[in-house]
Design a protein around this nucleic acid. Structure first.
Lengths: 145, 145
DNA sequence: GGAAAAATTTAGGATTTACCTAAATTTAAG
DNA sequence: CTTAAATTTAGGTAAATCCTAAATTTTTCC
């Protein structure tokens, strides 16, 4: 079991796919991703193929993409980090929603889960980000009542 | 005036050069850098040449390196971020010095100065990191008495 | 001072990531 | 079932990192 890592850019795709596919229930294709991330469709296809090689998703060419269990776990970790950071920026530092998201995006990928868990504890284990999306729990972070 | 940016890796070099040259007063050569950063001398030379092209330092081949005003300003910004984050990890989250430094290193480059300034205010404008190095001030962060 | 040893840089590559355009292929529309 | 639209493949570019081996410069020391 070699640890497979995902690049920062791939992480962006993963977070987006999770939001669209799992949270919004929509089918996600490479062209949608390209549009959202402002790259050419061919570029999105390439990244998707890499994520597929890393077993983060199942890719059916011409049809779309579906996260695997591994991909879902990875996306949730990333989104937990992102959303905890959003809460920090929004509640504590009083940034607006947009800016909270932007600042969180810059560091979520780089923050260790321990750091995130410490913020989570310090701010009372919030369970939603500023835009009401779920903040996933982490086994190492104290349970909520 | 085009904004010149430094990569995350180049930032590592810059921080290190500042600490050694300005704070410790030692002459810094490419081979020293290579040793500290665990790369081959040829690799360090290459990075130094890039930093030189970006006017962050003066490079005299075979002799050593000297930060320019621009390089010093950039290094101080980076070290301010790094050291404020160290304080956060050390004081607030109770990490030890080593780990505080490690965690800070992962995100210092990516954190906006606004975020850093907010942490700085929240923790009473500390002027030293956990290992007693100076935390440089920022014009947008409330003055200390 | 100059030759040999040591340190440093240059030259030339390899790999990875991320992006693009144009051509081919597949799907979808009528 | 043919054509239009969407999507992927093929083939490139560019920037970052890193490396080894060969050249060059500096240092050491007779």
């Amino acid at each position: 079991m070699v640890k497979v890592t995902v690049t920062e850019n791939e992480a962006r795709y993963l977070k987006l796919i999770y939001r669209k596919q799992v949270e919004d229930g929509s089918l996600v294709g490479t062209t949608d991703l390209a549009k959202w991330l402002r790259v050419r469709p061919a570029t999105a296809t390439e990244v998707i193929q890499n994520l597929s090689r890393k077993n983060m998703l199942k890719y059916r060419p011409y049809h779309g993409v579906e996260l695997t269990g591994k991909g879902i776990r990875e996306a949730r970790k990333l989104l937990r980090k992102h959303r905890i950071l959003e809460r920090l920026f929004f509640d504590f530092l009083k940034y607006d929603v947009r800016r909270s998201c932007a600042e969180a995006s810059k560091i979520d990928y780089h923050a260790s889960m321990d750091f995130i868990n410490d913020i989570c504890r310090a701010y009372g284990h919030p369970d939603q980000c500023p835009c009401q999306k779920t903040i996933f729990s982490d086994p190492l972070c104290e349970k909520r009542r």
